[in-house]
Computed example of a mutant assay.
Amino acid sequence: MGLHRWWQVKLVTLSLFLSCLVGGSQSYFYDRESLDDFLRKQANKETERLRKGVLSNVYLPSNFTGMEVSVVRLRSFSLWSRGMNYSSFNLPPRIVLQPNAKRIAILFENLGNWSSNYYNVPNHTMVASVFGVMAYSSSETAFVDEKINFTTHGDPIRIRFPHVDQHGENDTPICAKFRAGGLVKFKNMTKPYVCEVYSQGHYTLVVPSFPSPKEPNTRSHSKRFTKWWVLGFVIGFAGLVILVLILLALVKEAKKRRIRKMEKNSEGGELFDTFWIGESKLPSASMLRTQPTLEN
């Protein structure tokens, strides 16, 4: 790798890292536009040895392992009249370019395990890699910076996703197209794992990330169970405290009744003086006794 290319890779890696830091509030980690510009520049190096109409893989640095990009150069009339088939992409005839260009270069992208670093879909889970098809105007020897939009006026562009992650039996994947500003457009599949689209861009398959209506929400059920368990414990503890207080009151009242009964019984007998020894109150007999009398 030459010194110039080495510095390019370092700068791109640094820009991706900075994008991760400043873009934390966004819905993705890395900047998509920076990635598109980097892939375009990498593909631009391949055009020096490309023949028209021949597809070529684009070299990517080792720190982008898992991402696959291919490029082809052709005349716009050839794309209009015959279309093009490549791997997972089927481009039909009658594709209209805006603005028009005599020669174009088309990039076919498979972001692989990098997909979730650049794209995500709120409330959905991606079950396939993000595939992209992008067009640029081209000169005899290289790209130019102008990006070209293309749309179909006949059959749709078909993108087939060969590798799809496992998903729920009741969850059928749907197509998702990523737009500028983080917007996403959804569309049902017409064939298993095939998206039919009408313009260039980046696409994937997604399923809803929330449970389907037929599946019980175990988390909410657990929360409800915990709530009722805590409420039952509080009510039971309060009831036990009240019961103990009632029993103590009954015991105290029974003791008072027994003391009153003893005092009532003592009123019918002889009264004795009392005296205290420490904290104890004891009866005391009088020292005066009945004087004896002499009998005649």
Rank of each mutant, 00 (worst) to 15 (best):
S222M: 07
V234N: 09
P216N: 07
A249K: 13
F29Y: 14
V164E: 08
W6H: 04
N296A: 08
H163M: 01
E48H: 03
G53K: 08
M126I: 12
E279P: 04
T204S: 05
V230F: 11
V241Q: 11
S266F: 09
M84Y: 14
P122L: 04
E196I: 08
L282F: 12
K281I: 10
A128Y: 01
P99S: 01
S284P: 00
F131A: 00
T226Q: 15
D36T: 06
L240V: 03
M1Y: 12
A101C: 05
E33M: 10
T141L: 09
F210P: 02
S129H: 13
L240K: 03
Q26V: 02
G181R: 06
Y28V: 02
V234C: 12
L248F: 07
T290L: 06
R219K: 13
V12L: 09
R40G: 05
S139F: 03
R260N: 05
M67K: 10
G24S: 07
A254I: 08
A249Y: 08
F275Y: 14
R160A: 13
F233M: 15
S220W: 15
T290P: 00
S88T: 11
T274W: 15
I95T: 14
K261I: 02
K214R: 13
Q291C: 08
V69D: 00
V12W: 08
E295G: 03
L243W: 10
S88D: 02
L231N: 06
G181P: 05
Q166D: 14
R49I: 10
M287G: 05
P211G: 02
S56W: 01
V144M: 04
R158P: 00
K177L: 03
A43P: 06
A285V: 03
F272W: 15
N123Y: 14
I259C: 04
E46S: 11
P283K: 10
L282V: 11
N120H: 10
R73D: 00
P216H: 04
W114I: 09
E215H: 07
R257K: 10
V121H: 06
K191T: 05
V69G: 00
D37I: 05
F210G: 06
G268D: 08
F143S: 01
G24N: 08
V194E: 11
F108V: 00
N57A: 14
R260C: 02
Y30K: 14
G182C: 11
K10L: 12
S286M: 03
L39H: 07
E295R: 10
V241G: 02
P213G: 05
L282Q: 15
A128G: 01
K264A: 15
P173G: 02
T204R: 02
S139G: 11
I159G: 00
S209R: 10
I259F: 13
V22F: 15
V12D: 04
I106H: 01
A135H: 00
N149P: 00
V58G: 01
L11G: 00
L247V: 13
S137I: 01
A105H: 00
M287L: 02
R75T: 07
E215W: 04
V9A: 05
C195T: 05
G181L: 08
V206W: 13
